[in-house]
Design a protein around this nucleic acid. Structure first.
Lengths: 223, 223
DNA sequence: ACAAAAGTGTTCTCGATACACCCATGC
DNA sequence: GCATGGGTGTATCGAGAACACTTTTGT
């Protein structure tokens, strides 16, 4: 019944994922309601135990898929939380990741360990299991900081997007309105965007040019 | 003989520490020569297994002290490495830290698992055990990046220092000479320094004013 | 006296900011 | 025709970069 034995005590290792998206002009995070103890019935970040032959990032992606059905997000390691006592069962060290995806691409469904899955805005979080409130706070700080010197923001828009949509991302994460002309001048001067040649009409107004990343793939450092 | 048993496989968790200092106008890192297998006789970062009731940061400080005799460094979590197979014995997940200290404060002595302790400059590293070369490279990148937007650099000078010494730190990590007047203007404009009122004479030339951090303690974000 | 680092201001350039109007579409 | 977001240029300000000489000490 307990066949995995070691000469020295081993902690358990999990990954937890803070998946952010923009929904209704608000930065939101995906939480699951725990089906099992500890913290049964509490809201928590998706996550779970690392398999023996799986790297940490794969574990994060797998747990996110298993518990919420979501795949194809941008994922980045955030911090490792390992204070003794953060889990009442045993010593658990959690490698936290944060993830980004455009809301339209997501259709979360509760799976396996999750009794329920839901989006929460960051100013209206429920009581959270474990130290997940700390994880979310750190993730939000990191996201805000990286806006200024990387292309993380593009993780929150679809693969083609208008400058208006992109500006919205910056405004919401920074929590302040930006000047449209200055924003466009700045973002275009980075040289990471390319026009697709297409347009998109988002409402009863003039259609907007669509852009894409000139070199899609990894998040780049800018400036 | 193997009394620690679990229902599911548990990886081992270690911390590894990349301790940087400035020595001879070169950025150097402290390595130990491994006394035991695996990689017996190879150079490696100091580090070791997390104790059951110890937080990760305490583990890093303890391992550094046990293996090198060094205490009192600035320490910051870097990244967690967890690819299966990175240790030939068993699955080991390593939480890597980087540390900074002024060279004068350090007198490393080989202890416990270390057959030898030595400083290496970053452009003349020996073959390294495990994936420690990756850890060092990442640590160096992080250090360079944080120079620009934080007060990490102060971790490499003593608690009182001259502007010339501080400039040296920036120059060596950035790998380029800086203009003295611009550097002083910039660093003083940050408002994080205070004059001690004392002077220090480092050679056959005019003595330099000594400064200290106005609010010592945590590394601050600047700019 | 001379070698060596400390200390000190001004000019220029470029990126960041502030700011207002016409355009294309849906209703 | 009117409401809505898309799209555009110019003037100002401030931070960063370039640049050279005097001061103080040890030998």
């Amino acid at each position: 019944m307990a066949p995995y034995c070691y000469e020295y005590p081993h902690p358990a290792v999990t990954t937890d994922i803070a998946l952010f998206t923009l929904r209704d002009d608000q930065l939101s995070i995906l939480l699951i309601r725990r089906r099992a103890d500890p913290f049964q019935g509490s809201w928590a970040l998706p996550g779970g135990f690392v398999d023996p032959d799986e790297c940490l990032e794969d574990c994060a992606l797998r747990e996110l898929a298993e518990e919420t059905g979501i795949t194809g997000v941008y994922l980045e390691q955030l911090y490792t939380f390992g204070k003794p006592g953060r889990d009442p069962r045993e010593r658990i060290i959690s490698v936290a990741y944060y993830a980004l995806a455009p809301y339209e691409a997501l259709a979360p469904v509760a799976g396996s360990d999750a009794a329920e899955v839901a989006w929460f805005t960051l100013d209206a979080l429920p009581a959270l299991a474990f130290d997940h409130a700390d994880v979310i706070q750190l993730a939000q700080q990191r996201l805000r900081a990286k806006l200024d010197y990387s292309t993380v923001a593009f993780g929150l828009v679809e693969s083609t997007f208008t400058l208006g949509e992109l500006q919205k991302v910056y405004e919401i994460i920074r929590g302040e309105a930006l000047d449209k002309r200055n924003f466009r001048k700045h973002i275009l001067s980075l040289g990471v965007l390319a026009e697709t040649g297409e347009e998109r009409c988002n409402g009863k107004h003039r259609p907007a040019k669509l852009y894409r990343l000139a070199h899609p793939g990894a998040v780049q450092y800018i400036k």
